[in-house]
């Protein structure tokens, strides 16, 4: 598997750490309530198809990136910096 880091270019999957769905970027307010927090920490859409997910270029530049990838075919569709997605 190969991932294109926005800073470093195409690199082997071995350089990256996987965290999970990009829902982790959408942290609720402290008072958002139990359901919102349960959704954020535990519940997952878990789609069979394109998913937005978080990877960390641990063996490279140290960027957290948002990868859009198909979970059925492993096709890489898009990559963005997490910091830019959040900005």
């Amino acid at each position: 598997m190969r991932i294109t880091c926005p800073y470093c270019g195409e690199r082997d999957r071995r350089e990256f750490y996987y965290r999970g769905a990009a829902v982790d970027l959408d942290r609720p307010a402290p008072d958002a309530g139990g359901e919102a927090w349960d959704d954020f920490v535990y519940q997952r859409e878990n789609p069979a198809g394109p998913i937005r997910e978080l990877w960390f270029h641990e063996g490279g530049c140290g960027a957290w990136i948002v990868v859009t990838r198909n979970t059925v075919t492993h096709e890489m569709i898009d990559v963005q910096l997490a910091s830019e997605v959040k900005a």
Binding site: R19, D24, R27, F56, W64, L81, A82, S83, K86
Partner: peptide, 8 residues
Amino acid sequence: FAHQGLRP
């Protein structure tokens, strides 16, 4: 992650 992903 706390920085780039939550508090850029």
